[in-house]
Structures are given as C-alpha cells and as structure tokens.
C-alpha cells in the first residue's frame, strides 16, 4: 500500500521534473569523503566556489567520512545520476581502494561518469635532518643498505603517505621497517625529532617544515620543480625518474548522467580550474592545476584506469608482506 502510494507520488513528481528542463534547478551536493579541513576538502571548497558561479546554483560540500574515503564515495555512487550529487574523489578512493578494501561496492573505472581532474598535490621524499646522505642517489643507497634498520613513517594503511611510500620502496627494492601513525601530523613530529628516518608525503603537509629547515627534502615526484619549494630537485633530475606520483583530486558523478547535465558540469569544472583566484589558491598550497591535456572527463577516465593498474600490485604485495 505504502509503496504503491510512493510510486504514484513519485510518478507525479517525475512528470513535474520533466517539465523543469534546465539543469540545475536547485543546489548541488558535492560529497567529500574526508573530514572538513583536510587537503581534499580544501581543494573541493576552492573549486566549488567558481563552479557555483558558473552553474548559478550553490555547490554544497557534504563531508561523509569513513573507511579511507570509501564510505562517502560508495554513498555518492549510489545516488541518482541527476547531476545533483557529485563527489570529489582522489588517488586513494579511485586508485588505491580496490587493492585495500576487499568488499568495495564500486569500481573506480566503471561506476562513475568522470567530470575532470581538479588539482594535484605533488609528493615529496623527506627525511630527518640528521640523515647523512647529501642527495637522492646516496639516500636510496643508504635505505637499500640499511634494510630493516631504517624506519619509514606513514600515516596509516590507505593514506597517501602509505601508498606512495610502498611504491617508493618497491621501486628501489628496499625493505625498511614501517612505522605507522594516525595522520601526517604525528608522523612529521617524530620525523623532526629524529625518531623515524624518512617518509613520502604531499607537499602541502611538509613544505613549511622543509622551508623551516627542520626536515630534509630529497626530491619532488613531479616533472617540474614546485614554485613553493624551488630548491628541491625533481626525481628526474635526482636520478629516480620512474618515481612520478601525485595525490590527485578529481570530480566524479554517479554513472548514467544525462549528456547535457554532464556537459554542464564538465564546463563548470573547466571554468573553475581556469579561474585565476582558484588557481592561485591551489598553487599557494603547493598544488598543481591540471594542464589542458590532463583536464576533462576522457583524461580522467584514463588516469583512473592507469592508477588502479599501478597501485593494485604494489599495495597487494605490501599488505600481504606486512604481518
């Protein structure tokens, strides 16, 4: 009885809905799968502002946290594909998650309509101040030679510092002891105090300590140097060209978006990342703004596929190796 009523009500409403043809008619919810104030949330808020201006409706941020971001993404992926629910995914939720979460209820490459890349935050290889190695090459040798006596910090399984850290280890063929922290803050503290030897993390988290001279930076894993850390060489310059990694954030929508809605969202995001103010704010944080070749839905789809392929073997073996 109640379902019948609900269905009839819904069909009436659907008729109304069809009458209102221009999207968007009401505020759009952007699900951010991490807590307010985190790097992904900051990026989301920066792009949401110019997007709202283009779309003529407010883009409201909803923080749905949990399970390395997969709780929020799962919920958003199940929302109706009408363009009123979109989400800010990132390297973890749309790259590393399939390797780390067994019962994942979405497929990063298939359950979404990609909208476009929003921003990237480069990864920096940092070590304690007292680390003797003068450059990346000798540092890599030292880590390889030190074996389990070297302590590598990371901010919890599934975090950016974990994924990028084990990628680094597998690339250079080293097996340091992993020391786990809850979040980047405490890990950095122990790095400063010299309790642990090194870690890899997003530039926004480590830049102030590097410029303050409390920790040492060996290289930044991007093709070009970052304006926030002009003295830090790229991995290519320092002799580890294969270590190219960046924590990216991108906008997705649930699969099955109407073409016109999708086009509007893509255009809005494109304007947002070209907005000088938003650009400046992202760059100030040490982030990177997607270049033309990286922007847009097709490039994002390719990125997701390549990221899943890249992280799955690395993380699977890392999780299995670690008791």
């Amino acid at each position: 009885m109640r379902t019948a009523l609900a269905i009839s009500l819904l069909s009436v409403l659907a008729a109304f809905g069809a009458a209102a043809d221009t999207y968007p008619q009401r505020p759009i919810t952007m699900v951010v799968p991490f807590a307010a104030g985190g790097p992904t949330d900051v990026i989301a808020r920066i792009v949401a502002e110019p997007m709202s201006r283009v779309l003529g409706q407010q883009v409201v941020i909803e923080n749905v946290t949990g399970a390395g971001g997969t709780t929020g993404i799962t919920r958003a992926s199940q929302a109706s594909p009408d363009g009123y629910t979109i989400m800010m995914g990132h390297m973890g939720t749309h790259g590393a998650a399939p390797a780390l979460f067994k019962g994942l209820k979405y497929d990063p490459a298939k359950s979404f309509d990609p909208i476009g890349l929003a921003a990237g935050t480069p990864i920096v290889i940092v070590a304690k101040k007292g680390m003797a190695a003068p450059d990346l090459k000798s540092f890599v040798e030292a880590v390889k030679a030190g074996g389990a006596s070297i302590n590598q910090a990371h901010a919890g399984v599934g975090s950016v510092s974990h994924s990028t850290g084990v990628l680094f280890d597998s690339l250079i063929g080293a097996k340091p002891t992993l020391v786990v922290y809850r979040g980047t803050g405490p890990a950095l503290n122990d790095l400063m105090a010299g309790q642990v030897d090194f870690m890899t993390d997003q530039i926004v988290n480590v830049a102030p300590q590097i410029s303050g001279g409390t920790i040492k930076a060996y290289a930044i894993a991007t093709p070009e140097r970052s304006p926030s850390l002009p003295d830090v060489p790229t991995t290519k310059e320092a002799g580890l060209p294969d270590y190219q990694v960046s924590a990216w954030n991108a906008v997705f929508a649930p699969k099955g978006l109407p073409a016109d809605v999708r086009a509007k969202l893509v255009a809005a995001l494109d304007t947002a990342i070209k907005d000088p103010n938003a650009r400046k704010r992202i760059l100030d944080l040490g982030g990177t703004v997607p270049k033309d070749a990286e922007a847009g839905p097709d490039a994002l789809q390719k990125l997701v596929e390549s990221e899943v392929a890249r992280w799955t073997p690395v993380l699977r073996s890392a999780v299995e190796a670690n008791p």
Binding site: A35, A36, G37, G38, P39, D41, V42, R45, I46, G185, V204, A207, P208, Q209, S211, G212, T214, R281, D284, L285, G286
Partner: peptide, 14 residues
C-alpha cells in the same frame, strides 16, 4: 590547520 590552509596560510615555523 584546515581552516588556515583554506585561507592560504600553511601553519608552521615560518
């Protein structure tokens, strides 16, 4: 910290 970074200030020794 999040609030500061949103305003473009990265808290730290600097």
């Amino acid at each position: 910290v999040g609030a500061m970074t949103i305003h473009g200030i990265v808290p730290g020794p600097g």
